[in-house]
Structure formats: structure tokens, C-alpha cells
């Protein structure tokens, strides 16, 4: 329980702040105070948000008209995550860039490079934690780094499972050095797509992975190749997981945000049969 002496004047502002009713001047001042990393106000705010969020529970629950669910879900498949905003850098969803390799990496090499990456980030985390303990910047950085670690752990997780399927992807252009592979866990349908030497996409385009089933192309997800000749890993979830159900995978270049059907030429392709 907080004692009265421990309270400071800004704490007063927490209630109008969570209701969004501070005037612009006070709001700016209060946010500047939060930026200094005041733990007391942060805790207070978080508890207030939890508390007022209980009010909707007083209302009678009622499902929206049934069409809404479908409308939202179909909207998702036609529009994916927006490009990272400049103001607050967020690691590109599901994409981790590993070191540049010229030859197809053997799997121990791949594994070791990921482990190194994880270790590096963990040590960086501890370093930052010591250096910037109180700044608001720290939290953002930590969140970013934690997301990166999560991605790498996801990759490790998929590579470590007992039953992992692998399919090589070959390029469709004789002059290209590009190749790739898809690793996936049939049961959970978690997948990692790895591509090497694909050229960096233009700003308005994105690479897209497709799963071929019954001669149809099912959308899996988009990823970016920012640097030419780099070795890129992207984590995805497949619409189906069993090898018998999957005829193959293909990668095309699509307008940024992805397409529902392939519109660009196939860059890489692999078939299970």
C-alpha cells in the first residue's frame, strides 16, 4: 500500500490520463514525466487500465452479427502487416537475417550461426540493461530484442523437433545463384523458409511463399530480402502440415502486402513428389 508521502503530484494526473481527458499541456508534461521512467506512475497507470477495463464486464455479452468474423478474417488474408513504421522501429514480423553465406550452409553451420545470434543478443540485453536501466528507450529496445530472440528461438524450436520435413527450393532462372529450403514441423505446421542469394526486392514488392496443394497455390506469408546475396530466414505457419497434402512450395515476387494468388514469375520452387 502506498503511503501519502510517497505520492507525488503527477500521480494525480494518472486517472484523467487513462480516461484520455488531460488537456494537451498537462498531457505533454505528464508524458515527459513518464519518459523519465517513473516506476510509480507506470505501475499506477497499468493498474488503472486494468481496473477500468472491468467496466465492460458489466454489460451483457453479445456476439456481433455472424458475418463480421468472416469479414475480418478475409481481410487478413488480403492485407498483411504494414511495413515497419519509421518512428518506432519494430523488427519485421517473422524475419531474421543471418550472416551472409556463399555456399549452401551445412545444417550444423546454420544451427551454429543461429545459436551465436541468440547468444549475442542475450549478452547485448544484459549490457543494455545495465547501461540504460531507467530510460523509456530501454523498454523499446528490450521489446525489440526480445522479439528477435523469440524469432530465433522459434527457428531453433522448429529445427530441433524430432520430425521435421525439409524441401529444397531451386531457382527457375539459369543465371541466378539463388536457392532456398523450407523446414517444417508437420504437426504444428510451423515452418522456416530459408532463402540465399535472392536479389533484394524493390520497395513496393515483397517475396511471398506459396504452398501448392491440389494444384492450387495457398498463401503462406511474405518476407523481405533487404540485402542482396544474404541468407534470410522467415518463420511462418502453414495452412496444412502433412507431407502427403503438400505438393510443393513456390516463391514469387508480389506487391508489398502480398497477393491472394501468385501474380509474379516463380523465383524458387520445390516439389515433394
Amino acid at each position: 500500500m502506498k503511503t501519502e508521502e510517497q505520492r507525488h503530484s503527477q500521480l494525480e494526473l494518472c486517472i484523467p490520463y487513462v480516461f484520455g481527458r488531460l488537456n494537451p499541456g498537462n498531457r505533454k508534461q505528464f508524458e515527459a514525466h513518464l519518459e523519465t521512467g517513473c516506476e510509480q506512475c507506470k505501475r499506477e497507470l497499468s493498474e488503472l487500465y486494468e481496473a477500468i477495463a472491468l467496466l465492460p464486464l458489466l454489460l451483457k455479452q453479445e456476439a456481433p452479427p455472424s458475418g463480421l468474423r468472416q469479414r475480418i478474417l478475409s481481410r487478413l488474408s488480403s492485407k498483411r502487416s504494414e511495413p515497419p513504421r519509421a518512428a518506432k522501429p519494430i523488427p519485421q514480423r517473422g524475419v531474421v537475417e543471418a550472416s551472409v553465406t556463399k555456399a549452401p550452409p551445412r545444417s550444423w553451420y546454420l544451427y551454429a550461426s543461429i545459436v551465436m545470434g541468440v547468444l549475442l543478443i542475450i549478452s547485448l540485453l544484459f549490457f543494455l540493461n545495465d547501461q540504460l536501466r531507467t530510460t523509456g528507450e530501454l523498454e523499446k529496445k528490450l521489446t525489440d530484442l526480445q522479439a528477435q530472440i523469440q524469432e530465433k528461438q522459434d527457428i531453433l524450436g522448429i529445427l530441433q523437433v524430432q520430425k521435421v520435413e525439409i524441401l529444397q527450393l531451386a531457382n527457375m532462372d539459369a543465371g541466378s545463384q539463388a536457392f532456398g529450403r523450407v523446414f517444417w514441423e508437420p504437426e504444428k505446421r510451423h515452418a522456416v523458409v530459408q532463402v540465399v542469394n535472392l536479389i533484394a526486392e524493390p520497395a513496393d514488392k515483397q517475396y511471398q511463399l506459396w504452398l501448392v496443394k491440389e494444384k492450387k497455390y495457398l498463401r503462406v506469408g511474405e518476407f523481405d530480402v533487404n540485402k542482396e546475396k544474404s541468407n534470410v530466414f522467415a518463420v511462418m505457419t502453414l495452412p496444412v502440415g502433412e507431407r502427403q497434402e503438400i505438393e510443393g512450395f513456390a516463391i514469387t515476387l508480389e506487391p508489398r502486402g502480398g497477393s491472394t494468388q501468385p501474380s509474379g514469375a516463380i523465383q524458387l520452387r520445390g516439389a515433394t513428389k
Binding site: 465492460p56 451483457k60 453479445e62 456476439a63 487478413l76 498483411r80 517473422g94 522479439a147 505457419t237
Partner: peptide, 29 residues
């Protein structure tokens, strides 16, 4: 939410089924 961050649509559908019935009447209010 972690699964949603990894573009898992089924996770979003589950979250929707869970909370749309709370936030629909709430938005209506």
C-alpha cells in the same frame, strides 16, 4: 498474441471468438 505476431490467423480467430462478444456491446454502448 504471440501467435498472432507470427501471423497465425487461427489465433486471431480464437481471440475474436473470445472477446468480440464483450467489445461489441461495449462499442454499442
Amino acid at each position: 498474441l504471440k501467435r498472432i505476431q507470427r501471423s497465425d490467423q487461427r489465433a486471431l480467430a480464437t481471440l475474436y471468438d473470445r472477446y468480440a462478444p464483450v467489445f461489441y456491446p461495449f462499442a454499442l454502448r
